[in-house]
Computed example of a mutant assay.
Amino acid sequence: MKLVPLGDRVVLKQLEAEEKTKSGIILTSQAQEKPQEAEVIAVGPGTEEVKMEVKNGDKVIYSKYAGTEVKLDGEEYIVVKQSDILAIVE
């Protein structure tokens, strides 16, 4: 199955949470903060008012409480509006 976003929506796959702090302390899964960095999996066509500025494969930072979580074929995705994407990581 494949997710095809509509309008100005973008499908993201969240990057893995850090398992260690910079000082080397190993975090339990409950203590790990969900990263707000993700990879763009699919991009909608946009609308007359919104030109799509991200493309498949981009790494992005998105708003903390943005989007809808979707589970498909055992994988978890987040569907967000392009306006919820704050930056592209280069």
Rank of each mutant, 00 (worst) to 15 (best):
K13E: 13
V10D: 06
E75Q: 12
L72S: 08
G44T: 08
G44I: 09
V40N: 02
E49N: 03
K64E: 09
E53G: 07
E49R: 02
V70Q: 03
K34V: 09
K20F: 11
I85E: 03
S83H: 07
V43W: 01
L6N: 08
G74E: 03
K2H: 11
T47Y: 00
I25N: 07
T68R: 14
L3A: 04
I26F: 05
E16N: 11
D8T: 05
M52H: 05
E48R: 01
A38N: 01
Q36E: 08
G74W: 00
M1K: 12
G44C: 06
I78W: 01
E19Q: 13
V80K: 03
K81E: 13
V40M: 04
G24T: 14
K51L: 02
E69C: 09
N56S: 10
G7F: 08
E76R: 15
I25K: 14
E75Y: 07
G46K: 01
I61A: 09
L6P: 05
E75D: 14
T68W: 06
V80G: 05
P35Y: 03
L15C: 12
I78K: 13
Y65F: 15
D84E: 13
V79W: 00
E33K: 14
P5C: 00
Q30C: 02
E69Y: 11
V70G: 05
A87C: 11
A38V: 03
V50T: 09
V89G: 07
E48Q: 08
E19W: 06
Q14E: 08
E18L: 13
A31I: 02
I78H: 00
V60A: 05
D73R: 12
D8C: 07
P35R: 14
Q82V: 15
T21F: 07
E90T: 11
V10P: 00
V11M: 05
Q36D: 07
Y65C: 08
G24C: 13
T47M: 07
I25C: 06
K22G: 12
A31P: 03
L12M: 01
E18Y: 12
K22M: 13
V11S: 05
Q14A: 10
E16L: 10
G74L: 05
K59G: 04
V79R: 01
A31L: 09
T21L: 15
S83P: 04
V54P: 00
K20C: 04
A87N: 15
M1F: 08
V80D: 08
G74M: 03
A31W: 04
A42D: 04
E39S: 04
G44L: 02
K64N: 05
G74A: 02
G46I: 01
V60D: 00
G46M: 04
K64I: 07
G24V: 14
P35G: 12
V80E: 02
V4Y: 05
K51R: 10
K64M: 07
L86P: 05
I88W: 06
P45R: 03
I78T: 13
E48W: 01
K22N: 12
K71N: 12
I88S: 01
K64H: 11
G7P: 02
E39H: 01
Q36L: 11
G74D: 04
I78P: 00
V70E: 08
G74K: 03
V10Q: 02
R9E: 15
M52L: 08
R9W: 03
N56K: 15
E76I: 15
K64T: 11
K59A: 03
A87W: 14
L6R: 13
E90A: 13
D73Y: 12
S23G: 13
A31N: 10
E37R: 11
I41M: 06
L72K: 11
E76T: 15
V60W: 04
